[in-house]
Design a protein around this nucleic acid. Sequence first.
DNA 1: GACCAGTGTAAGCAGTTACTTATATAAGCC
DNA 2: GGCTTATATAAGTAACTGCTTACACTGGTC
Lengths: 105, 105
Amino acid sequence: MTYQGALLALADPTRRRLYERLRRRPHTVGELARIARVTQPAVSQHLRVLRDARLVTDRREGTRRHYQASVEGLAELRRYLESLWDDVLAAYAADDPAPPKRGSR
Amino acid sequence: MTYQGALLALADPTRRRLYERLRRRPHTVGELARIARVTQPAVSQHLRVLRDARLVTDRREGTRRHYQASVEGLAELRRYLESLWDDVLAAYAADDPAPPKRGSR
DNA sequence: GACCAGTGTAAGCAGTTACTTATATAAGCC
DNA sequence: GGCTTATATAAGTAACTGCTTACACTGGTC
């Protein structure tokens, strides 16, 4: 039900690039800021959005903070997309010239 | 590679509601406008975005225009999401206390 | 041809958002 | 305690976006 947050979070190109960096291994904010084309505060802001969408989690280690991709937000988004997918396919099948076995509805 | 358009298109709540209406059967613009909480021009604008993202197709019939969900854009988005999913799961497995059979990298 | 229903486009506006710089907070080190 | 490094937050701004009203266009009907 929070797939909306994930959808919104991943819609932004910069945020998506950050997330894609995290999808393989954790990174600190500084690492991401060095990679990104925006300043460190911008990265922090994006990470906050990703965290609120439960796409990433963070772990503190001294002054550094490690962010890593989380399954939760992505799983929600994935479920939502699969339900859309099923419906669209079903609509296609119902509309197609070869309806295999049309049920009650 | 056009999953970006689909992502952006579905990020907007109004647009998502319109798309969810189309996911089961086609609708005309008028039908959607009556359902939606926005005016017909707004609906047309949203439909254009959805069409550009290849999430819907349209078919003219007299003065009416029928929109229906398309598999293309959704398939692209789905593929993208699956690749993210695989990577995140792999990262988790690599990080987990029970690495089943860690390969070369 | 005149009218009407259905839809797309144009222009303008208000709210949002992604960025910046400046500053606060916190931990490690001398 | 003072300094440095790492990160978050605050405040301000420019660009974007989703909405509206007004209008153009197209096809059917009389």
